[in-house]
Every structure is written in structure tokens, then in C-alpha cells.
Computed example of a mutant assay.
Amino acid sequence: MAVHCETMSDVRREIDRLDRELVKLLAERQGYIEQAGRIKGQRSAVRDQARIEDVVQKVLAEAEKAGLSGAIAEPLWRLLIEKSIEHEYEVFDKKSAAE
């Protein structure tokens, strides 16, 4: 829950704090994406449309509970997923080239 702010300086300080935390969480998420790229046996397994939709639905349910607009959550996560898939392809391709 957002803390009450009196000034724009307060707002910006809190946003900057949250951004630092988000970067840490996204880096952790990326680590799991990299493990998936290492673990998956076939390049065609990198994109899993059913899993994409499952993740988005779970995020939307959590967003609703947390008071995050679905209009923010859904496109943001779809972009995050697409960029994660691109990264996973890179990891998979590097692994395959090294074998």
C-alpha cells in the first residue's frame, strides 16, 4: 500500500525506492528464465502459449486483489513475458551452439 506523501519529492523518492526493488525482483525472475533456457530440450518448447495465458490470468487475479489496474498489469506482463521469451531464446541458442 502506498504511503501518504505531502510533496512531489516524497512521491519521487518512493517511486525510486520501488523501482530499485522491482529491478531486484526482475533480475531474480530473469535468473529463472535463464534456467528454463538451459533446461528445455527443444527450441520449440521456449514459447508455450498455454503457460503465457496461465501466467497472465494469475497476474490479473493478483492485481485485482492488490488494487493494481488490469489495464496496467496485463500489457505490462505481456511485454515482460515477450522480452523474457526473447532472452530465453538467446540462452537456449548459446547453449545449443556450445554443445
Rank of each mutant, 00 (worst) to 15 (best):
A71F: 12
K24P: 03
D93M: 04
V91L: 00
E53R: 06
A63N: 05
R47F: 02
G70F: 02
Q35I: 04
E88L: 01
R47K: 10
K24N: 05
R17F: 11
S44R: 10
L80H: 09
E53M: 05
K95T: 05
I52K: 10
K40M: 08
Y89Q: 00
S9D: 15
D10W: 05
R20K: 15
T7L: 02
S44K: 10
I72N: 06
E34I: 06
M1K: 13
K65Y: 06
A63C: 07
R38P: 02
C5I: 13
D16R: 11
A36H: 04
E34T: 06
D93N: 09
L22D: 04
M8G: 04
R17L: 08
L22I: 14
D10L: 08
R12W: 13
L76W: 11
D16L: 12
A97V: 07
M1H: 12
H4S: 12
E64H: 13
A27W: 08
L26Q: 12
H4Q: 14
E82K: 07
L80S: 11
A98G: 03
R51L: 07
R12G: 08
Y89D: 01
R13C: 09
R12Q: 14
D48P: 00
G67H: 07
D48V: 01
A98Q: 13
D10A: 11
I81Q: 01
I81H: 01
K58A: 12
L68K: 02
A2S: 13
E86T: 08
V46C: 00
L25E: 14
L68M: 14
V59D: 02
I33F: 06
I39Y: 08
D10C: 08
K58Q: 14
V56R: 03
K24H: 07
D48A: 00
R17Q: 09
V91S: 01
A27I: 05
R38H: 10
E90K: 11
R51E: 02
E88R: 02
M1Y: 10
I52S: 03
V23Q: 12
K58G: 13
A36K: 09
A66G: 05
E90W: 04
A73F: 05
E64P: 00
V55I: 15
S69C: 04
R13D: 14
L60P: 01
D10Y: 05
A97R: 12
E86C: 05
E28M: 11
S96H: 12
